[in-house]
Amino acid sequence: MLSAALTIARKDLTLTLGRGSGLVQALLLGLLLVFVFSLSLQPGQRMTPQAAAAVFWMASAFCQVLIFSTLYAHEEVNGQRQGLVLAPAPVQSIWLGKALAGIGMLAAAQALFIPAVIVFLGQNVSALWPLGLGILAIADIGIVAAGSLLGALSQGQSAKESLLSIVLFPLLIPLFLGGIRIGTAVFSGALAEGAQSWFGIALAFDAIFVAAALALFPAVYNAEE
């Protein structure tokens, strides 16, 4: 299963880097969001750390919807989905492969969003940055686990990106709240009470959605038109 997943992830990253339009679109959308929010500031004014962290996670959210609709759209061009389903590896390896490719792309995008937030929204990074990286990693795992499961809904032409975001965004709220709270701490340098609990909630989210995806993905992804 792992080798099939790695094969799929490698193929998807090659496709993305080869053409790149999928990731570039997602990156631009996220950067535009950050830029547009910087317009809410007076010259010389700084955004509050909490608002900046919220903008960062919103950019990440839109970005990942585009990433997963692109990743699954690759399989619709010439009916490749049928070929993937016919492969002898368990169908969950498709979920895992897409999730691996997705987390790579999401992390690459976030690597650009962080400096954008710092520059456009006037933030400073405090000594708490390792916490920020920690919640980033944990939240990203949950985001791609859910994104790869629900991205498969867009199989065929029946569902569009807008639908994916309608279903996905509310589900991801626990991760966003945790990400925003810890992000606020990173930008402001003051750690509020209950920081460990956020890590606990985010880890619980990861565990639940990875398990749910492994159990449910075969029902979502098949060769039917």
Binding site: A146, L150, A204, A212, L216
Partner: peptide, 16 residues
């Protein structure tokens, strides 16, 4: 699938 995942999310949303 959506119905199952949505309900699994309820306690997480509540806690957070």
């Amino acid at each position: 699938v959506v119905g199952i995942v949505a309900f699994l999310d309820v306690p997480l949303v509540f806690l957070s």
